[in-house]
Every structure is written in C-alpha cells, then in structure tokens.
Design a protein around this nucleic acid. Structure first.
Lengths: 166, 166
DNA sequence: CATAAAGTTCAAAATAAAATGAACTAAAAA
DNA sequence: TTTTTAGTTCATTTTATTTTGAACTTTATG
C-alpha cells in the first residue's frame, strides 16, 4: 500500500480519537475508504492494520453499531466483508447534535437548581434556549439539503473546478 | 451543599467526559453554575470537590482556555476567583463545528487518494460537500440568533410557562 | 460426522490519561 | 526582609482504556 494511504489511515485514526471514538475504528474506516476494492475481509483488515483478531472484532462491532460500516456476506463464502456504509450523511450530524441537547439540558437544570436569580441564571436561560432553537433550525436545514442536494453538490463541484483551473 | 446539587455536579462531570473533556472540568463548571455565590475561590472549589491543588490548577487552566470560565481578581485580596464566563453561547457551537470541518476534510482527502472512482467516491463527495454547506448555513442561522435572540427567548419562555400552567 | 476456517469472548498485559502530593515560585503582609 | 498565603509544576501513583492472545463457538464443506 502507498505511503500516502498509510499516512491517511493513521490520520483518520487520530481524528476518530479526537471525536471520542477509538483510534483503531478510525484506521479501519480510513482503510475502507482508500482501499481500491469494493469491500475488505476481516482478515485483510487485520493484516493491513497489523492488529489482533480480538481488536478487529471489537472495532468492527463499534463501527457497525455507529452505522459507519456495513457487513457484506457472499454466498459460497464463509467470510464476512465490510465496506463503508452509504448512510445518510445528515444522520451523523443529527446524532452528534444530541450532544448539544444534553448540554442544553444540563444548563437548564442548573438554572432550576439555583435559588437566587442572577445574571448567570439569565445566561443559562439564554444558552439552553439557543440549543433548543438551533436544533429546530438544523432540522429544517437538513430537510433542505435532502431535497436540494443534487443542485448544491453541482454548485460546489463547479466552484472547485474553477479554483483548480485558475 | 444540597444532595441535588452534588448529584448535578457529578452529572455535569459525566457529560463533560462524554463531550471529550475531563470529568473534573465538568464538576468545576457544574459547581460554578449551581453555586449561589457570584464567584468561587480556588480553594473553595478544591474543598467542595475534594480534589488536590494540582488537579484544580490544571482543570482551571483547561476551562479558562476553553473560554468556559473567567478568572476574577479583587484589589486587596491575593486569591483568584472564578465564575462561569458569559461567553457567546453560539461560539461554543462554532467551536464544536470545527470537528465537522476536520471530518469533511478527511472524507474529501480520502476521495482524492482513490484512483478508482466508484460509489464510495460519490458518497465521499456528497458527504464532504454536506459539511462545507452546513457550515455556511449555520453561520447564517447564528447571525439570525444574534439579531433576534431577545424575541426568540421570549417566545420560548411563554411556551414553557403555558406548559407549566396546563 | 469430522475437519477446518472465520470470528467471538474475555482474562491478562500494555498503554494512556488523570489525580496526587511535595517541592517550588510569586506576591502580598507583617 | 521575613513570613505567609496562593497557586504552579511535575514526578509518581492511580485509574481507565485498548490491545493481545489463547480458548471457545459457529458455520460451511469434504
């Protein structure tokens, strides 16, 4: 495998770690992305990433659970193959936004626990309202994306090409 | 301190951990929120949370760095006091959105590294465009929030009161 | 049915992250 | 200037997370 791709796989690992997932999950996802084959077998992944079966087994479970990869099985072949799932990208965002809901909730509960109303209380109300509101707005935006994405992607593609040509 | 508040502080710790920060940072933030005093001293925080000076020192640095708390000093008093910062709540969101930029970037770079263009490539283009686009949309929404927040908060407040009365 | 390949499980080992505590620095007060 | 208080630093310890590897389960195939 090309050095560039190996570097890429490691960077993906580091990013996943930053996002609160595991490094190995990032490596597997990165590998599935840059691999030229449609899918990779368990053992192929294990060999490329030089990890143990146990580690790959646990990682695949994580990724399947997060909906980031899909398992593929073929008739007449007892192996399991994996590929990046073509999940709705907006679902990842929606999922991540739940973190904001949690944050909003804790701010709002904090406000309720205070007996004295001061400017921190004001701030807490403002902040928790913001997250409630932004959640609603985002739902609308995501609907817009789903209905107009072909057009939007085309616009971005043209912009990108212009930049390359110039 | 009331049991409820102690529970709250611990829950805040757990949430911060889930968000990728430290448990202690969450506890300190939670405490500063529910404390009835305008600000808390270093040693007061240390005592309430039963932690070492070293731990509090490092945690306060983290929180100051993340812009979540502010330090206050008073003339004729060598202590440093801390309070939750009244930062623009939308800035926290903006900051968190950088994670999505990173994610978009790695998807897009993965697409560039593939020599074969297949449906994973298509998906990568779609996904990375989505994050670019959503970032722009969010900036607009945040502007809207900043200019209309008083009105929006008032609307939410009324809704909340209605729910309580009924 | 017996064999072998493909994965899973889980206890133990390795690694990483966070907290402690003691020695240190800075700055106000006596 | 000396003392005291407030906080920082950092090596060590504690705790939590990840990985390994060997024994086990499952499923296909001769």
């Amino acid at each position: 495998m090309e050095t560039e791709k190996i570097t890429y796989i490691e960077e993906s690992g580091l990013l996943f770690e930053k996002l609160g997932l595991t490094r190995m999950a990032g490596r597997v996802f990165g590998y599935l992305i840059v691999s030229e084959e449609d899918q990779a077998s368990f053992d192929q992944i294990r060999k490329v990433l030089q990890a143990s079966k146990g580690s790959i087994s646990g990682t695949m479970k994580q990724l399947l659970n997060a909906g980031m990869v899909e398992a593929v099985s073929l008739p007449g072949d007892r192996k399991t193959y994996y590929r990046p799932s073509k999940m709705k990208i907006s679902d990842i965002l929606k999922h991540r936004m739940r973190q904001f809901d949690d944050f909003a909730r804790i701010l709002s509960r904090g406000e309720e626990l205070k007996s004295k109303k001061d400017d921190v209380s004001e701030w807490l109300i403002e902040a928790s309202t913001f997250y409630l509101w932004i959640g609603e707005q985002l739902d609308e935006i995501i609907d817009k994306w789903e209905s107009e994405k072909t057009k939007i992607i085309e616009e971005y593609r043209q912009n990108h090409e212009e930049r390359i040509e110039s």
